[in-house]
Design a protein around this nucleic acid. Structure first.
Lengths: 222, 222
DNA sequence: ACCTGAACACCGTTCAAGT
DNA sequence: ACCTGAACACCGTTCAAGT
């Protein structure tokens, strides 16, 4: 009975765990329901009782991934150790990029959206929960006076997007792992340069780039 | 003979074209060599003469995609119409995000790196060529005095990464297409705020975030 | 040189049947 | 309730054989 614990209710969890491992080591192409079943000593029809689809299993993996991501994000964003805000932000950024870079196939699953409309809502909610941590950080920064005013949601989105892009490049071998942390830190510096209000200047959109506030030809057909 | 032009040398091109169309409409999961062959009125063994692997065909598609991307990028980056640098940069950014958002499956193929070591070099070169356009733009901006000094490669990387991240979010339905251009423009604004030198201040890393320049505990274990 | 078509091993999915 | 195992339709890949 201890030898085959999957037969009395644990199969679903075992499938997810095993799938995660296979995904991490062999990528999405190395993941097949039949081999999963084989590895767990179960017939190839068994998984369907718990995941109607292969897509359903993949969705479960993505949701699991978001769970871990958000947990880590919340932990990283909650350290208010009295250090400069820039430090905290840099820490969160580096932590995120490392997480996302550790398991490229999982990250793909999380953000690639070849999901069924079914779990799509749950996934979108999970993604938004992650974003919410960053939004909260931004609001804290604004309250402190360390960040420009402006829609926290948008600011968080840009921050998060930059990290996501760096991750994407890292996973595509466009940046090498060696200089990954450095690039992440640099990105935060550049963004903070824009996000940090400066005593002698008004915020970006009124003084720094006045041109952008004037009416101008539609950039569409460029 | 005009009815089946694939049989005398045109098969390879026909496969790529057809595959691009299928990829755009049905995603990566809807793309099979056998159906491709069927649609082109050719036996299922025929494609192997031109692409030893399914992966090889996918690599060809990715390279094609980079070709179009880089062409567009070069065109967009070359308009030096005397407008403010911020405008040009915004135009390029919006153009890139639109391109990358038009064909999500292709973009995945381009940046997801489940490629064979074979074409990996060619793909990396293609990606770098795209980056080079942005680097050139950055250098132009620096020469004009519109951008802070600093390694153009790194600056371009951060710029490009931000757009890539926004694209990723858009393709994952985390941002809706409606506000996509707006978010892209806002991202450029935020980045430029950091990238634009201000008369009364020294560059970011010496004045704006002095804390980052001091020695401090390793952010690793956060 | 290029394509055909049978063959092989592997999928995902369904479903009656077992316990 | 949960799992089995045969069945079905579809893959990618290989390879002798054709033209």
């Amino acid at each position: 009975m201890t030898a085959r614990p999957y037969h009395h209710g644990g199969l679903r969890a075992a499938l997810v765990t095993q799938a995660e491992a296979t995904l991490r080591t062999s990528g999405i192409d190395g993941l097949s329901l039949r081999e999963l079943a084989r590895e767990l000593g179960v017939s190839h029809g068994a998984p369907q009782r718990h995941f109607r689809d292969k897509a359903a299993l993949l969705d479960a993996l993505a949701i699991e991934g978001f769970g871990r991501l958000n947990e880590m994000l919340a932990r990283a964003a909650d350290v208010d150790d009295g250090h400069a805000f820039a430090w905290t932000l840099t820490d969160v950024a580096v932590a995120y990029v490392r997480f996302a870079t550790e398991d490229p196939a999982l990250l793909d699953l999380m953000f690639t959206h070849k999901h069924q409309a079914d779990a799509s809502d749950e996934l979108k909610a999970a993604a938004n929960a992650g974003l919410a941590c960053v939004v909260a950080m931004v609001e804290r920064g604004q309250a402190r006076g360390d960040l420009v005013d402006g829609d926290p949601q948008s600011i968080a989105m840009v921050l998060f997007a930059t990290l996501q892009g760096i991750t994407s490049f890292a996973n595509a071998d466009i940046v090498d792992p060696q200089s990954l942390d450095e690039l992440t830190t640099y990105a935060v510096e550049l963004l903070l340069g824009g996000l940090t209000p400066h005593p002698d200047q008004s915020p970006i959109n009124s003084t720094f780039i006045p041109a952008l506030c004037e009416k101008r030809p539609d950039p569409a057909q460029s």
